[in-house]
Amino acid sequence: MLNPISLAFKEAKKEKRPALLTYTVAGDSSKKQSLEILKEISNYADILEVGVPHNTPVADGGQIQTSAYRAIKNGIKMNDIFKIVRDFKKSKNSKPVIFMGYYNMIFQYGENNFLKKCKKSGVNGLIVVDLPWPENKIFSKKCKKNSINFIQLLSPTTSNKRLKSITKDSHDMIYYISMLSTTGGKLKVSPKKILANYNKIKKISPKKNCVIGFGITEKTISNFKNTDGLVVGSQICKEITRSLSNRQNPVINVSKMVNKLRKKIS
């Protein structure tokens, strides 16, 4: 049986479109609201990345930092995040969930405890921004044993030799970082160039589902229709911030935005 993440890609492929992955920060702007957002956007997104907020995020730009600080300020704790996922997984439209965060949160929880709790709550995959290959070898094996996808990251600076080793050690899904940037940066590389790198990865590793992230927005997303999947994060976080400062409901606004994103690639 396929795992839920691979299944989501398969479903999207049936509809001849890339899978849509969204990123929102758990607890932004409150525990309750972030759960509502997940429930609403899962009507349109295929896989939901749930950001585990951390206060020294070395790879995140302003938008995601703002969301993360807001969530931490509102008192979000690791156990609350697990609970948000568990509650979301009980809802009728639930979709696969991937945690995205920094290694210290896992390290403090204890790797084994963390994975046990992931399994119990229904987390399907993990992206650990600051645990690169080969440092992640042991942990990614542990994930596999627990049927949790450890998602390896690739970037434009990844050498060919490294690319081969990393994809070999990866599970069903890999994540290509489109450009040299923190999250939320403007797309500074042409889509053509990004797709060339994407195709290089697919050639080396045709069976793995490869998603592209960083710089994907309403404006740029339609350039990448012929891919396995696309991640939109910062623009959603920005929309939450904008809604809050305009005293509008972020749940409605974000849901509208994700609906639009989905239409652009369908």
């Binding site: 070395v58 790879a59 290694y103 921004v129 600051d130 645990l131 690169p132 290959w133 440092e135 990251l153 690739l154 970037s155 434009p156 600076t157 990844t158 050498s159 490294r162 970082i177 040299l180």
Partner: peptide, 11 residues
């Protein structure tokens, strides 16, 4: 150790 994003591995 080197707990860094993939992008920084090469530099």
């Amino acid at each position: 150790g080197n707990f860094v994003p993939e992008t920084l591995k090469k530099p």
